[in-house]
Design a protein around this nucleic acid. Structure first.
Lengths: 110, 110
DNA sequence: TCTATAAGTAACCAAATGGTTACACATTGA
DNA sequence: TCAATGTGTAACCATTTGGTTACTTATAGA
């Protein structure tokens, strides 16, 4: 996941309405734009703009079926960030262990 | 972590320069504003604005020591989101298991 | 004490964001 | 075929964002 994609994903998640829209899509796989917009106190176009942000971030994927746009939650970006952070915490923990060993060894040298 | 805080954290992370500034602070605990701003091709005030965003999101904490502002990385918000996502993946996995059990039981009923 | 250094504040400005309404186009189903 | 339904585009606008320069205040050290 490159930096541009990270920008898009974090930005998409940086708005409560958008997180709620994402949750709604996740809870109703294959739902359409109207279904989602009825859940929110916002114009349909407003909702569509949020959906566009989520889709640009690859957090949802959609498919035109006739006159409907069916939308699906895509778990991958969040999972990738989660793994990235998991790796980072692990690495940081290892670095702390290495530091601790060094301190202990210095203690034994004296 | 409430929704306002989530907004702040994700927004703070939604900019490559800001992620790089955060990494720089993390790599140099106790560093000052000038140290950070020398690392970037941006005015000091520009960097300060980014630092303010990171601090509002609680991703860094700082402390005025004389004329210096010493800054530290705060790992907590990212860890909290990481846990939140871990919980969610686990719950989702459990829900999938429950669903799978139900399908199997229906298969046995027939 | 005075100069250098570190940070803070204010103002400015272009671009981006996040909403709105109005209108248009495409598909569905009676 | 035509009305209903679903979506898309365009335009608008207020606010926010992300940078800049100019100036000020506070602290450190010679």
């Amino acid at each position: 996941m490159d930096d541009d994609q990270l920008d898009l994903v974090f930005h998409a998640l940086a708005s409560q309405p958008r997180r709620e829209i994402l949750a709604a899509v996740r809870g109703a796989p294959g739902c359409n734009v109207n279904f989602i917009s009825e859940l929110f106190d916002m114009s349909r176009i407003g909702v569509m703009k949020h959906l566009a942000v989520l889709e640009a971030a690859n957090l949802i994927v959609s498919e035109k079926v006739g006159r409907e746009r069916q939308m699906y939650f895509n778990p991958v970006p969040i999972q990738q960030i989660h793994e990235m952070w998991t790796d980072e915490f692990t690495r940081h923990f290892s670095a702390s262990l290495t530091k601790l060993k060094r301190i202990i060894e210095q203690g034994e040298d004296k």
